[in-house]
Computed example of a mutant assay.
Amino acid sequence: MRVLVTGHKGYLGAAVTDELLSKGHEVTGLDTDLFERCVYEYDRDANARLTIAELAMDLRDVRAEHIAGQDAVIHLAGLSNDPLGEFDPKLTYEINHEASVRLAELCRQTGISRLILASSCSVYGASDDAILDEQSEFAPVTAYAWSKLKMEQDIAALADDVFSPVFMRSGTVYGLSPRMRFDLVVNNLMAWTVDTGEIFLKSDGLAWRPIIHLRDVAKAFVAMLEVDRQHVHLQAFNVAVDSENYQIRDIAAKIQSQIPNSNIVFETAASSDNRNYRVSGKKLETILGPDWTQHSLEDGIAELHAALTTTKVRPDEFEGTRFQRLAHLKSRVSNGELTSELRHALSRDHTA
């Protein structure tokens, strides 16, 4: 298939692109590359493997001619986490919601039938300890979560006999990527552990998260391209595994059990996190089979430990402007590389 991937240079985008290429698909990327310096060279060949045709452009500028001729679109581009979403909620809605709906309209206009969209389990927001499925009530607590919910609702209204959107509500992702993120809980805890020996918790650790390995998420997105329409049309899927729901302090305990001489440390006056949810992945399991995932938390801890021990990253890097998404963008705005609307100060070509 000819597949357009928006956000192909992001944390998840790199893994999705790799998975698509391994399956023999013809891939075009579309990305404004806000995080071009967030390269983690644990694998020096990784970026070379991901060389594809690409459109260097902002999602907000996409027109019909840019996507015409594609068989499907996997839409990952956006402002990608809660702190970043709160940086400028209006901008978060403009990119994650409005530009995504416009992309869906263009897909429908140009006859692209399958649109796979990156949503998030954060739409469930604050909940009790019940395990939530795709029919559970929404309780988003951040601008990022609200933008994803509105995206789902408005794009669902565009579905017809040809245009078929599929919403992938990913859990909290972790694992290695050439475009690394250390503002994700497992990645962040592992970076602290390897560098300092301290498993540093910024909250009381009682909140629940459904965690899922990056490569498993990529596998699920790509698999959705080939599933018969009748099974996925206008459907939302939790990209999660029931057994991989953890409280944050349980993740810390798992790390401590695998990393010798590490100690769990709580930030002074650590508070609770109101983002609290456990989710069920049984619906996705009915589509992809019971053994569709290949990574457990223990596997991910071992993978991250090996990479971070070999290719070290300092706290000022994983908590600072090199890898921390919000700090990175604020720095680029401050030094004039990006405008306050997160556009490049100097225009870029739109050609591959």
Rank of each mutant, 00 (worst) to 15 (best):
V333E: 11
P83L: 04
M224D: 00
A126V: 05
A156I: 03
K148Q: 02
P210G: 10
R215G: 05
T196E: 13
P140W: 14
V62G: 02
L132Q: 04
A352D: 13
F221E: 12
A236T: 08
T17F: 06
N263Q: 13
C107M: 02
V232W: 02
E198H: 08
T268G: 09
Q258E: 13
K202F: 08
D250N: 12
N274Q: 07
A269L: 09
N187G: 07
T51S: 07
A253G: 12
D129C: 08
D154M: 09
A345W: 11
N238E: 03
G10A: 09
Q230A: 15
F266I: 09
I155L: 07
T193H: 03
I212D: 02
S120Y: 00
S347Q: 14
L176G: 01
L201W: 04
N81D: 11
I52E: 00
V39A: 10
Y246A: 08
E152P: 03
D316F: 09
K90D: 14
Q235Y: 01
V62K: 00
D18I: 01
T17E: 08
L132Y: 08
D154F: 06
T311M: 04
W146K: 13
E267F: 05
D33C: 07
D88R: 07
H305P: 01
R63A: 14
D88A: 12
Q256W: 00
I301P: 00
D45M: 13
I287V: 15
A236Q: 07
K254G: 01
K283A: 10
H233V: 11
H305F: 10
M168G: 01
L304Y: 01
T196M: 09
K150E: 15
L76I: 15
E134A: 09
I74W: 03
R278C: 08
S119G: 15
L184P: 03
Q324L: 05
L55S: 03
E86V: 06
I251R: 14
N263I: 13
T193L: 08
F167T: 03
G171Q: 04
L304C: 05
H350W: 09
H344C: 01
Y93I: 06
